[in-house]
Write a protein that binds this DNA or RNA. Structure first.
Length: 445
RNA sequence: GUGGCUAUAGCUCAGUUGGUUAGAGCAUCGGUUUGUGGUACCGAGGGUCGCGGGUUCGAGUCCCGUUAGCCACCCCA
């Protein structure tokens, strides 16, 4: 016997999880489309040279790579941004600018696993390229907001920052050339204590007064306007800093104008984002009830997406929903509805010799847009209902010899165990209409 | 990739200083009930104690390795 098992960091998805996942994907698709983002897809496998060199050495090390049967060096995509850069460089002429796309697909990273961190996971990216308009930045924030609200994740906070604010403060502190190191340390705030981060900064040779200024900046919290005013005085003397603060003012004001509740958005100067290619606004979002999970949706603005593949400058802004991390979080919070069937009606197989009647009824219900499962065996009714209950069916339709004789049917609400008798006189459309309205009344139509 | 913790039935766990045929609850399946599920009663299946090696008269229990999970670093969704 071969032991059935899966690779470290790779998982099976059982119906309850897979249904929850598909539901979120449906919501994401709907929200992205509602802003005009169009779907694209790219291959899972690319030439190695396309994928390497864009990220850090770290990502190169984490990439799954091999030599294919034709002797080509290939790699599996580890995010959706790099393939999109290649895609954009290759197809700009057909796309026209600005171009908005969404891409929901699996990516692979050979790194160590942890809760909400796997080696195979799905990302749901959306980006707008070919425009530097602040409207596109604002739209990114709005999409993230609508997305998390529509998924129903509970309380969440979108944390905003702007790379230029950081740059301004760093320049004023004489640390402009130490950017990456300093930002990486500041990015740990929230996970590590301020003292630990201060010690780390000092270890990098940052002067004590600069450490104090950086920690004050990163620790700023509270009302958006107050934070922005303080940031202005910390880094506004430098042009980049001034621009960054202004951009954040624009976006927070625009979000409010678009109807986003004030508490959903915060300006958090400690948000730096590891990836170096962000140049303007950066964003991370957290579940209020599980901030330790990390960001479930992150993004930002970049100056030039595809510089490696084309001379045409392609600025853009976009974000990515980490659906697997989000699912891990929602499951931990007990906020996932664990239903094991996508169907609405369980049709009990009561009398074996009535098989064709059942098939006719099921077909008519399906034609009316209802999802119906017809049990394949004429087993005991109790057993069939037990299975239906376990699977989470909202309703069961029961027709035995008595019902057929009287031209009736039992519609059973599986949650309350209450039955309604439908009098359909053997007239199929009447039965279909009755079932459909009962399903609608249950709120699962 | 580095370090720490963990690993007994599908799940949650018990298992006395190493000592005979490894237990419980829940879940599953069958029956009480050839027409009605989450309760009750009866019964059944299911474990080479993650895997491999070592110490020992004897290992679920001790040691080493390995695989997987969790946590921290790193990085990130």
């Amino acid at each position: 016997m071969i032991e059935p098992r899966t690779l470290k960091g790779f998982r099976d998805h059982l119906p309850a999880q897979a249904l929850a996942r598909e539901r979120i994907l449906d919501v994401a698709r709907r929200v992205y489309r509602s802003y005009g983002f169009a779907p694209i897809d790219t291959p899972a496998l690319e030439y190695l040279e396309i994928l390497t060199g864009k990220g850090s050495e770290e990502t190169d090390k984490q990439m799954y790579r091999f030599t294919d049967h034709g002797g080509r060096e290939v790699g599996m995509r580890f995010d959706l941004t790099v393939p999109f850069a290649r895609f954009a460089a290759q197809h700009v002429h057909d796309l026209g600018l600005p171009f908005k796309r969404y891409h929901m697909a699996t990516v692979w990273r050979g790194e160590n696993t942890q809760r909400g961190r796997y080696r195979e996971f799905m990302q749901c990216d959306f980006d707008t390229i070919g425009t530097t308009s602040p409207v596109a930045d604002l739209e990114m924030v709005l999409v993230v907001h609508d997305l998390l609200a529509a998924i129903g994740v509970g309380g969440f906070t979108i944390r905003l920052n702007d790379r230029r604010v950081l740059a301004g403060v760093l320049t004023r502190l004489g640390l402009a050339d130490r950017g990456p190191v300093v930002l990486r340390s500041l990015d740990k705030l929230g996970k590590a204590t301020p003292q630990a981060v201060a010690a780390e900064l000092a270890g990098h040779g940052v002067a004590p007064e600069a450490v104090a200024a950086l920690l004050e900046m990163a620790g700023l919290a509270g009302p958006v306007d107050a934070v922005l005013d303080r940031l202005e005085s910390l880094g506004g003397a430098v042009e980049a800093g001034r621009q960054g603060v202004q951009a954040l003012r624009d976006i927070t004001a625009g979000a409010a104008a678009a109807g986003v509740a004030a508490g959903r958005i915060a300006v958090d100067p400690s948000i730096a984002r590891g990836l170096d290619y962000y140049t303007g606004i950066v964003l991370e979002s957290f579940l209020d009830d599980l901030p330790a999970l990390g960001s479930i949706c992150s993004g930002g603005r970049y100056d030039n997406l595809a510089g490696l593949y084309t001379k045409q400058p392609l600025p853009g802004v976009g974000a990515s929903l980490g659906i697997d991390r989000l699912l891990a979080g929602l499951e931990e919070l007990g906020r996932l509805e664990m239903v094991e069937t996508p169907a609405q009606v369980f049709l009990v197989h009561f009398e074996a010799d009535r098989r064709d009647d059942y098939l006719r009824i099921a077909a008519a219900l399906r034609a009316a847009g209802l999802a119906v499962e017809f049990f394949p065996e004429a087993k005991r009714v109790g057993q069939q209902l037990k299975l239906a209950a376990k699977r989470g069916f909202p309703a069961a339709l029961i027709l035995g010899g008595d019902e057929f004789a009287a031209g009736k049917a039992q519609f059973k609400n599986m949650r309350t165990q209450e039955s309604v008798v439908i009098d359909w006189h053997g007239d199929l459309p009447v039965l279909v209409d009755a079932v459909r309205s009962l399903i609608t009344a249950l709120g699962v139509g």
